[in-house]
């Protein structure tokens, strides 16, 4: 695996954490209850911390002098490598929780596997992140059950969120040529194996929540190669506006 490919691979992981972290930050001051406002922003903070470690490392691997801030604030939509699921709007609380639930189960399995990587820095980031993701996964899974097995209205809403967001779940679980190269090089994770475990774990929670597992069909993809939905541009516009307006500003 060449260095620029390794850079791309790490960028995907960093962008996933950054974009979801930024999305969750939008809930600050808008949570349905104070505890949830704090929970969502705590999770956001963890994700942005993970993104910092990953983007910092991606910059080192690239070797072109870009640090975490350069990578976060001075790339355009087409240069972002996150999966499309994570840039989807927050919607209502059920939408946010379903998006989180699908990703948390992925991230938990992914980081567990990444701890076996032959790259020491990725192992370190994975070992750190897994502790945080364990809490996130528990939180979103408990909410899926509470909403699914809750009132008629909460059940209907969260089932609808699940049905609408399911088409975005395939991208993170389906390996492309870069994923395969990373796996063969012993750096990355085998997504084919991960996908099976993800289905078992997700199905378990959905059944406990008395919800119906959507059927796998056509899935959205493209984010990992920089082809995004319309939503990412708006996220970046808000997130990048200050550093772009004042590119030489220092803390």
């Amino acid at each position: 695996m060449e260095q620029h490919e390794k850079f791309e691979y790490i960028l995907r992981l960093g962008d996933n954490a950054l974009v979801l972290g930024q999305r969750l930050g939008e809930w600050c001051g808008h949570g349905p209850a104070l505890e949830e406002d704090i929970a969502l922003t705590n999770i956001s903070l963890d994700l942005i911390g993970q993104a910092r470690s990953l983007l910092d490392y991606a910059g080192q691997v690239e070797g072109a002098g870009r640090d975490e801030d350069k990578l976060a604030f001075f790339r355009d939509v087409r240069q972002y490598r996150n999966v499309i699921l994570l840039e989807q709007p927050n919607g209502h609380f059920g939408d946010t929780i379903v998006r989180q639930f699908l990703y948390d189960h992925f991230a938990w399995l992914f980081y567990n596997e990444l701890m076996k990587s032959n790259d020491d820095q990725l192992v370190a980031i994975a070992a750190k992140s897994i502790k945080e993701v364990t809490y996130h996964r528990r939180h979103s899974s408990e909410w899926i059950i509470r909403l699914g097995d809750g009132t008629a209205e909460s059940k209907e809403k969260v089932q609808d969120s699940l049905d609408r967001l399911w088409v975005y779940s395939g991208e993170m679980l389906t390996p492309d040529s870069l994923d395969k190269k990373a796996q063969e090089a012993g750096i990355g994770v085998d997504l084919d194996v991960l996908k099976k475990d993800w289905h078992v774990n997700v199905k378990g929670v959905i059944e406990q929540a008395t919800l119906t597992l959507p059927e796998d069909g056509w899935m959205h993809s493209g984010g990992k190669k920089g082809m995004h939905s319309e939503h990412l541009g708006y996220i970046l516009a808000e997130m990048q506006h200050i550093p772009r307006a004042y590119p030489d500003a220092k803390w």
Binding site: E35, I38, A39, N42, I43, D46, Y135
Partner: peptide, 9 residues
């Protein structure tokens, strides 16, 4: 337990 997330991480 009120919430698994509190005033700091």
């Amino acid at each position: 337990k009120v919430s698994e997330f509190g005033s700091t991480s």
